[in-house]
Amino acid sequence: MRIDGRVVTPTGVVTGSVEVTGTSIGAVTPGDVADPQWIVPGFVDIHNHGGGGDTFTTGDPDAALRAAAFHLRHGTTTLFASLVSSPFDLMRAATAAFTPLVDAGVLAGIHFEGPYLSAARCGAQNPAFLRDPSLDELETLLTLGGGAVRLVTIAPERAGALDAIRMLVSHGVVAAVGHTDATYEQTLAAVEAGASVGTHVFNGMRPPHHREPGPVFALLGAPSVVCELVADGVHLHDGTLAFAASVTGPDRAALVTDAMAAAGMPDGAYELGGQEVEVRDRVARLARDGAIAGSTLTMDAALRQAVGAGIPIVDACRMAATTPARAIGLGETVGSLQPGWRADLAILDTDLRVVRVMRAGSWVS
């Protein structure tokens, strides 16, 4: 199968065609094309709580299937199911429920955003469920998931956090720093222990100060850390988005949605982690205190926001696909239009809106 257009590769735009052979990319070939459509790698979203009216946060596998299908239609061909801070029983039940979906390839993995987070920087996380990291809990979840648990966010200042990070990394799980009131030094200690992702950098973190730089500067400056950025114009001003991407470069910046069930849905009342959320003008906030509660973002909209902020499309696609894939250990199979890699791609019109999506060589209905 040959698909013509402007093909976005990690090194530039190739006007020509993508050859698809079975489930893989066969070749990217320069040539004359009549259609100016964009062909971009399928998006890789490593931080997502739901969408299309469904959520991952309750551990319901049917809801997870529907949420994954919603985001697939928006070009996200590789997706993590992100939980929020929860009682251990729910964490265990969700792991059991989602592991078959990971095994089937519907989900790429499970992400626990909490409960080992800072009360001072909990944001929309439910403070009733926050606690210090437990090696016993983590061991149980990793054993139950059999490789399905791929990412855990931890506040490094909590008691036992560095031991938990070391344990996760030793099991091949990505440890992330987020929802933290840590100092600059505490954050670097987490990086030294093996943390390699910054969870929605700037958001849910002690703000930077020129005499107390805190986690933001530590994460942006750490060569081994990929920094998640929520590109919805709400979590981050476009100037902040562009600045952060210029500091990290596209190889250390990952666009994420942090989407919740309200993504793609009308304004109204929703739920997140046992808390009421109100969505107005596409912005999700906790009813109790107005804290930002995830987003209503999809990855195609995040790409448009990044390009609108001045980030070149080649870099924006790396941030939306190539870099997050590498951050979670899938960087040699998905996230780029290269020969031999899985044929995951999205066709976008000249306004960068999704026209068609392919996953593993098959068009998505």
Rank of each mutant, 00 (worst) to 15 (best):
M167R: 10
L297H: 03
S82C: 14
T199S: 15
V14G: 01
P208N: 05
L90Y: 07
P312A: 06
I39A: 11
G233P: 09
A176F: 04
S86G: 05
G233L: 04
H49M: 05
Q275H: 06
L337Q: 07
I46R: 05
P156T: 12
S196P: 02
V106I: 15
L219V: 11
A327G: 08
G273A: 04
A195Y: 00
A67R: 06
G145A: 13
M260W: 04
A320C: 11
M265N: 05
G16I: 06
T143N: 13
T333A: 14
V197Q: 02
P41M: 12
L144P: 10
A293G: 03
V13N: 03
I328K: 10
L79H: 10
R2D: 06
P223L: 05
R66Y: 06
A68D: 03
V152F: 13
A159F: 00
R280E: 02
L79M: 11
E19W: 01
S362P: 01
A306V: 01
R121C: 14
H71Y: 02
A244L: 00
T95Y: 15
L79Y: 09
T296Q: 01
E332F: 11
V8T: 06
P213V: 04
T199N: 04
V334W: 02
V364P: 04
V174G: 01
V279Y: 00
V102T: 11
L65D: 08
V33Q: 12
L229V: 10
L138I: 14
A148H: 15
I313V: 15
V13H: 02
I3S: 01
A316E: 11
F80N: 11
G329E: 11
L345P: 05
A155M: 14
M205T: 02
T296M: 00
I110L: 15
G12T: 04
G335F: 03
A34Q: 01
V28C: 11
A155Q: 12
